[in-house]
Amino acid sequence: MLTTFSGRKASQNENELSGLIHMFKVEQVRSYLEIGAREGDTFYDIVSSLPVGSSALAVDLPGGMWGKSTTGRKLERAAAALRAKGYTVGVVLGDSTADKVIAAVRTCGPFEAALIDGDHRYAGAKADWENYGPMARLVAFHDIVGQGQREKVHGNEVEVPRLWSEIKATGAHWVEFVDEGSLMGIGVCVSR
């Protein structure tokens, strides 16, 4: 089982995350954006796999529908640990669809890679795709598998698979990391 920075149970499938990290290494990613960084576990794993000196930015909404009130403090702790290892890391706390958050992220970009893992409802995931997708060459999505399954903690419908199907239908170049039997999956759109 994947050991996380925060010590909580991993929210990623280890094989799927390893596939994404390997892709980022092959693509020589040195700047990274994560939307929906929560407690910083995936953010920490991905950033610490990049070359030292790389830059990264985490965005999260503590206390939001997909997070907890304590996520900001824990995310800041992960960011501090990455800075101590030699990475340039920033954290933006707020709603990813808010103009001030989008503007703050834009000033730090563009990015070579991004992971969208915030609001899992269709409208929220699509807004993140439209707002942040143009800022990165590689744009990954978490939870691309399934048909409207319910999110475990809050009972909201996970609608990322619907958006991912639409992205694939555009003819964009894409890659998927889906472990056998997984109900999560990671999809990456390459240079839209």
Rank of each mutant, 00 (worst) to 15 (best):
K68S: 14
E34D: 12
G64E: 04
S49M: 05
S49I: 04
K100Y: 05
S55H: 06
L61C: 03
I102S: 00
S54D: 08
S31I: 00
M65R: 14
E16Y: 00
M65Y: 08
V52C: 07
G94I: 03
V29P: 00
T70D: 15
G94F: 01
P62K: 13
D41C: 10
A98C: 06
A58Q: 08
T88P: 00
E76I: 04
D95K: 03
A37E: 04
V29S: 00
G36F: 02
R38M: 04
E16N: 04
L33Y: 07
T88E: 12
N15A: 15
S69W: 08
V52A: 13
T97S: 15
N13P: 04
V92Q: 11
E34W: 04
I46F: 03
Q12N: 04
W66P: 01
L75H: 03
S55V: 05
A37C: 13
R38H: 15
G36M: 00
D60Q: 11
T70L: 05
G94E: 00
S54M: 09
L75N: 04
Y87T: 05
S69L: 08
T42A: 14
A81E: 15
K100N: 11
W66C: 01
L57R: 07
K25V: 00
Y44T: 14
L33T: 04
Y44F: 15
I35T: 10
G40T: 10
V29I: 13
D45W: 03
